[in-house]
Amino acid sequence: MAKQNTVFKEAFNRALTLIAETARLPSEPELSQALGVSRTTVRAILTRMQELGLISWDKRAKLVLRKPETGDYFPNEETDSLSAIIERSFMRRILAGGAEPGMQINELELARDIGTGTTAVREFLIRFSRFGLIEKRPNSHWVLKGFTREFALELTEVREMFELRSAAGFAALPEDHAAWGELAAIEAVHHALLADIDRRYPEFSELDERFHLLVHRASSNRFIVDFYDIISIVFHYHYQWNKTNARQRNARALEEHLDYIAALKTRDLAGVEAACRKHLRSARETLLQSIP
């Protein structure tokens, strides 16, 4: 229920936005389509709205009684975006299946597993398929094509171009930019992980994603930020596929990140480029070693 609970909370918050703008809510099938969740989740949302005194619900009639207040919403830390939930469930399913080329993915099963509508799952799979990692087949089926060495080399080549550009952009950010505060917070987490590396090394992949996404966002280029989705999925989950020497590898990457962060703080472009290139070379080696 934990997965569905997150889907429910995220959809509930979006449903509150709907009732802020209308006097009557549409039918359950229409709500299901508008929120991208199952009919079961829609009924759970309506039940909670009724319990909070937001609506009166009698069969098809759903009358808005009051506007939502801040306290009605679930806090942000309890809700993930629907695409993030689908991405995690999709990768969990692939990992459980051993990520073998030819593995079948059924969008109906995936949607049922998450507790969301098939439309949102299909949109995610279509978006993911443009990189050639999965392929559409008839009857809501998809096939995993596998991560080849060629794919990994092409991916790292583009990653290096984009990240070098983004790192230079980050170094040029004004001193009062919010990204510097986030960078300091990320740096502190790096030190905490290194201080307890034997126990906490599995936490690295999520921290890695958080750090590199922050750097990529400094590009202010929507194509670079959008492309980071596929980078994070492939690199993040390859850390999990290849568990050989994971502790040592993650400790080295944490040290490289700290050198990279130190270079960003100096704003010296030559130093930033050198630290960025060094870390990306290591990341490429790790990725290539994980491919059978």
Score class of each variant (00 low, 15 high):
Gly98Arg: 10
Leu18Phe: 14
Gly102Ala: 11
Glu154Thr: 03
Arg93Lys: 14
Glu256Asp: 12
Ile85Phe: 02
Phe223Leu: 14
Leu54Cys: 10
Lys136Thr: 04
Lys278Ser: 15
Leu25Asn: 02
Ala275Lys: 06
Ala171Tyr: 02
Phe204Gln: 09
Asp229Met: 10
Glu135Ala: 14
His190Thr: 04
Gly117Glu: 10
Ile186Thr: 10
Arg112Trp: 01
Gly169His: 01
Pro101Ile: 06
Asn139Pro: 04
Leu25Asp: 02
Val272His: 06
Phe170Pro: 05
Ala168Tyr: 00
Ile231Asp: 05
Leu18Asp: 02
Ser232Thr: 01
Pro202Asp: 07
Arg137Glu: 14
Leu63Ser: 13
Pro68Ala: 13
Lys9Ser: 00
Glu77Asp: 09
Ile291Tyr: 04
Phe151Leu: 14
Glu28Gln: 13
Asp58Lys: 13
Val37Phe: 10
Lys59Pro: 00
Leu82Glu: 06
Val215Tyr: 08
Leu46Gly: 03
Glu69Gly: 01
Arg122Pro: 01
Tyr260Gln: 11
Thr79His: 06
Phe227Ile: 04
Thr286Glu: 07
Leu54Ile: 09
Arg210Trp: 10
Asn139Asp: 14
Asn139Leu: 11
Leu155Glu: 03
Phe223Ser: 14
Leu18Asn: 05
Cys276Ala: 12
Met91Lys: 11
Lys67His: 09
Arg93His: 14
Leu280Lys: 06
Arg217Thr: 06
Leu18Tyr: 15
Arg130Glu: 13
Pro29Glu: 07
Arg66Leu: 10
Val143Gly: 00
Phe162Gln: 15
Gly36Met: 10
Lys62Pro: 01
Pro292Ile: 09
Glu135Phe: 12
Glu10His: 09
Leu16Trp: 04
Arg200Thr: 11
Ala246Ser: 12
Ala167Asn: 03
Gly146Glu: 09
Asp58Cys: 06
Phe223Gly: 04
Gly132Leu: 13
Leu254His: 07
Ala274Ser: 13
Leu194Phe: 04
Lys67Ala: 13
Leu35Thr: 05
Ile197Phe: 06
His257Trp: 05
Leu269Phe: 03
Leu287Cys: 06
Thr40Leu: 13
Ala99Phe: 06
Val37Met: 11
Asp58Pro: 02
Phe12Ile: 00
Thr17Glu: 12
Ser205His: 11
Pro26Met: 08
Pro292Val: 12
Ile230Val: 14
Gly98Asp: 08
Pro292Tyr: 01
Ala172Ser: 00
Ala168Leu: 12
